[in-house]
Write a protein that binds this DNA or RNA. Structure first.
Lengths: 209, 209, 209, 209
DNA sequence: GATGAATGAGTGTTCATTCAT
DNA sequence: AATGAATGAACACTCATTCAT
């Protein structure tokens, strides 16, 4: 299940030196800014390099194609997101199941809402990229963490933890994404979040093991 | 809430004549086929015209830009989807709420699964297109239908039908989309569908008005 | 022996229409002029198109790559050269062998000297191009014509016409090319031509069949 | 006639030190290997340096441009070739003229055939380089040696040694080159060599002084 | 109306060359 | 002296769009 990225999409240079790492950061930030400002179709390698303050040549030293740049930006984004989820899951070990679901919802929603334009821009940057592997790896990491969490629930044991877990994760992540695509008011979003929590709680209560 | 499409994205020619309509159909079909076969980045106007059996010139009569073509294809897709949902909602009027949710889930899932490659291809075709308006219009139509449905539920009355409805719709649509992005096995997908139904039922039972 | 050109190097558009043919001519002429003026390394597709008075796009309509352009220019050059040789060979049928050799030398030398800068430029344009096929085809056509010619010599029959023919052709063509690379004075060139004729005559007299 | 190379194409550093000379050799060898393996268009300064085991910087110490590298490689190749010819000419002093011609043919042909891929690769490397001077210098050295040789012929004295010599040299060198461009079988090549020797002998016999 | 040849701005990418370390 | 990361001008090539026929 842990598919690793196609090597052709990997950045060439690992951030071994401080300088190179700073360069990578600048390139990532430039990419995201341009994605947010103008959208994917106007994202050219030249403009990214310009805004990052490096030459195109240097950029191609780090990323052998435009694709690999996009890939790396998404990879880093998902890496950070996965870390947040793992952290939340560890922190919630042993709590009642409903509290776990609520923690997961809060974390995911907060992460996505922190820079909503970035979230949206990255959702849209995916066209040219083979993102199957990326998604699969993120899913694998995430499900490992959430499964461990729900398995440790204090108040109940599930007959089929994997099934319940998969349902919760898919529902939560999917709901957040969908809520992002619709232009809800802030109040509507908050209400939606409450309803989602309620729904998960009801669901968990309904499946006593 | 009923935002209509930006006029620049609308096809120039409405399908008033049989001939024109056949042309439009051919163009739509060609677009979808190419999208499925080669993906958005390889979709060129020339290739679409070729495969549709019309000249580029003719295609530009119908769609003033490439964008408007993509827009129209998505619009038509959502139009059909909305009709299916409206039909389901009308048919479920007066049933118990849980049956309504189940019917909605079945319809939506079936529609998306019917031609899964098309579903995926269209999800990915959205880059160049300002899809806010499209989504908003679809959401408006859908919510009108589902709200009317849930308001007619035989077994209970909701304190806040709009809130419950928004939650259900967002959760269901979001879950389906997310399940589409993950590479679940057929068995996992079926199980997920059952869990989603269970979740909605538990939720509906928990919010007795 | 008659190897035909790799299809990837062939021009896309056959000169079926008067317009297209004029375009092709303009492109060919532009290519040759730039080759003569600035040499291969400065020959860019943009400059060729500019000088030919067409857009790059149109040029790429005719020639799918830069390579195919260079290939076509050389092909056309060799085509004309081959025709001249064939004409000379036909005209010399039945003459004494020495007269044939002289006619061949005169024709080849004149053809190459007509536009010496073009000759030199094309010799140098060959780097990026797989010219094996081109040379082979030219050689095959040429040898067919010269073999037929020498076989009809009035004064003698060769024990091995093919061998004698190959020797004469290789020597003559090679000598001309080599004389082109050295910076001989006009007088030296004329003398060289006389000596070459003398050499061929002496050779032919020495191999009485 | 003794034109020396344009100073801009000369290598910067003369092989004064053992170390530098080893570096030069490595660079030359790397260049030739890459030329043979991938052809001129894929020959980049970086790859040459890599394969030679030196840094680009060091390579640019030795050769101020890519051109000068190519120039130097060809220069060295012609230097060795010229030495072989000079050696042969000295060894043949006083022999009959026909034997001289045969010795010259043997030497030249052997030198070119020793590493035929190198021969071909260098022929094709000449595009970017102003090779007039190189050829001229080689021609001057060569003609001095051959003229001295033919002037010492035991059996006859030529009315115009320079003219005869120029003819022989141009014919022999040109024939070998041309035979290299055509795809002759080994048997055909051998026969061609015999015919060329016969031709030179017949020619020499015909021009008794 | 319909056609499709022509356009040319704009793209990703390379690679000879430099220069701070 | 030696290095090799950084540079950026230059290139081959594409493709949305137009418009003469």
């Amino acid at each position: 299940m842990t598919t690793s990225a196609p090597s052709s999409l990997k950045p060439r240079k690992k951030p071994q030196q401080a300088r190179a790492s700073a360069t990578l950061d600048a390139i990532f930030e430039a990419t995201i800014q341009l994605l947010v400002k103008d959208g994917y179709p106007l994202l050219t390698t030249t403009r990214v390099a310009e805004r990052a303050g490096v030459s195109v040549g240097t950029m191609y030293q780090c990323f052998p194609h435009k694709q690999s740049l996009i890939y790396a930006v998404n990879e880093r984004y998902l890496e950070i997101l996965a870390e947040k989820i793992e952290y939340t899951c560890r922190a919630a070990l042993g709590l009642p199941a409903a509290a776990m679901a609520e923690a997961l919802i809060d974390t995911y929603w907060a992460a996505k809402t922190e820079r909503p334009d970035v979230t949206r821009a990255l959702y849209r940057s995916v066209v040219e990229m083979d993102n199957e592997a990326l998604i699969a790896e993120f899913a694998a990491r995430t499900e490992a963490a959430t499964t461990a969490m729900f398995a440790s629930a204090s108040n109940r044991s599930f007959s089929d933890v994997e099934s319940v877990n998969r349902a919760l994760v898919t529902v939560i992540f999917g709901t957040v994404r969908n809520s992002f695509e619709r232009s809800h008011s802030e109040q509507e979003v908050n209400d939606l979040r409450r309803q989602l929590i309620a729904m998960c709680r009801a669901y968990l209560e309904s499946c006593v093991g």
